[in-house]
Design a protein around this nucleic acid. Structure first.
Length: 446
DNA sequence: TCTGGGGTCCTCTATCGA
DNA sequence: TCTGTCGATAGAGGACCC
């Protein structure tokens, strides 16, 4: 999908169509998740610090991501892919490999092109969004083709043309070559795919290590026989938070780690998994990151055990100077939960003991100020459906429009106005097949 | 003006038992 | 008994991806 999160927001908010839209964390340490093509003109791109984006594109619309909505739309698209082949390998919410041959959907270049063209039309019909298709004989080439196809296009790499196509390109187009490997190769005088081939396999292994070296050399020759894998088992579950301001207080660090441990367990249990290895992650004030882990004798999904282990790991970490990020993860996963086995017998915190997993209750008795995240849907008793354009200083600004309305009017309310309530996202396409799905998922957010 | 969140895979080093 | 080695497992860190 093209600029997926930003495109969804534009589809859902008529006033943003054709405008620079930037989706990401809006805090002082946020980064850009997706920039619409209109925003990219200003030089804004994914992973850029939000502060920098704001300098480059001060008039863009800045929105926080709405993953539940993106997930629902992603499911519609994945459904279309699964209709083509049982072998669909999702890479993220907005990208997937499909083995067209395995599904009998295509067997040569021409049938593949027809299938891809129809798929793009179907995606547009079902979601109202544009998607790009790359067609080739391997995953690596299909991926490169789809990058070339963006936005809103289709590119087919004809068999036999691969080497000529790759040769002059930067090493960075090969999967697995990021900034570090790219620099490494450049210092060795290798900047193009051609030069990787010329350097030879032995030299590459010497430069970047065994696994990476053999892999890269094969990729440079356009050799890639990795299969499309439909079902991938989850290997780890983790949660992490970056704090707006570094935490110096050791007591606060400890309570944050406890909170993260609970959140991690909630996710773990949600997936009906348990794990043996508990990992604590600490990013210090200077961005240096360290991890500490401990492997238990058996898998657990007991919040008390994960909390205690994480706390123990924290004791071995020097946090003087402050921490900017904390994280807790579980790996070495097993496909069952303690509950299935011996929770009752051993006295572990059972799954239905919600208290142990709830967010800590707020101590303050003052009325909790309602939060109005930028971009989220709202409903007003008098004016109907809209979305939060911004808030602050006790005021919230709402634009009243829906996916199939004309661009709407803006009005401002007090943040505690009882007529204003958070609302579920509306489906992008009226009567679209995904309508019930979208609302069903949206309700969960409530 | 700094650098998110959730993952995966690889490498290196240490340790331990056979 | 001493020493080396092999393989498995742990633990830490780094690179990469979306």
């Amino acid at each position: 999908m093209d600029a997926f999160y930003a495109s969804v927001e534009q589809a859902s908010k008529p006033s943003l169509r054709g405008k620079a839209v930037i989706v990401g964390g809006l805090g002082p340490r946020g980064v850009v998740a997706t920039a619409s093509y209109e925003a990219r003109v200003f030089g804004v791109h994914s992973a850029m610090p939000m502060a920098q984006a704001r300098r480059l594109a001060p008039h863009a619309a800045y929105l926080v991501p709405r993953f539940e909505l993106y997930r629902a739309i992603s499911e519609q698209v994945m459904g279309l892919l699964r209709a083509l082949s049982p072998l669909v390998e999702p890479l993220s919410l907005d990208e997937a490999f499909v083995d067209l041959e395995a599904g009998g959907a295509a067997w040569d270049a021409e049938s593949a092109r027809l299938t891809g063209t129809k798929l793009r039309a179907d995606i547009r019909a079902v979601t109202g969004l544009t998607g790009s298709v790359g067609l080739a004989a391997s995953k690596m080439l299909a991926k490169i083709a789809s990058e070339e196809a963006k936005p809103d296009g289709l590119v087919l790499i004809e068999p036999g043309t691969e080497r000529a196509l790759l040769g002059p390109r930067s090493v960075r187009i090969l999967p697995g070559v990021g900034p570090a490997t790219g620099d490494h190769l450049r210092r060795a005088g290798i900047t193009t795919v051609e030069e990787i081939v010329e350097a030879g396999e032995d030299e590459l292994v010497r430069l970047v290590g065994k696994a990476h070296g053999h892999g890269l050399y094969a990729m440079a020759l356009a050799h890639d026989d990795r299969p499309v894998v439909a079902e991938r088992d989850t290997k780890s579950v983790s949660v992490e938070d970056t704090y707006d301001v570094d935490i110096h207080d050791r007591v606060r660090v400890r309570t944050e780690v406890q909170r993260l441990a609970d959140r991690c367990v909630r996710r773990l249990r949600g997936a009906r998994l348990s794990g043996r290895t508990i990992v604590l992650k600490v990013r210090r004030y200077d961005f240096s990151t360290l991890t500490r882990s401990e492997t238990l004798r058996g898998p657990t999904d007991d919040p008390a055990v994960v909390r205690e282990t994480a706390a123990r790991l924290l004791e071995a970490v020097d946090t003087t100077g402050g921490v900017r990020l904390l994280g807790v993860g579980v790996s070495g996963l097993a496909d069952y939960t303690q509950e299935d086995l011996f929770a009752q017998a051993a006295g572990e915190t059972p799954l239905d003991d919600e208290d142990a997993l709830e967010e800590p209750a707020r101590e303050d008795t003052a009325p909790v100020e309602r939060r109005w995240p930028a971009g989220h849907d709202v409903r007003h008793a008098e004016y109907g459906h809209g979305w939060v354009q911004g808030s602050g200083l006790g005021r919230v600004t709402v634009r009243f429009e829906t996916p199939d309305s004309a661009p709407g009017r803006v009005r401002t309310f007090r943040t505690d106005d009882p007529a204003l309530q958070p609302a579920d996202p509306l489906p992008l396409k009226r009567d679209g097949p995904g309508q019930s799905e979208v609302t069903a998922v949206g309700r969960k957010e409530g």
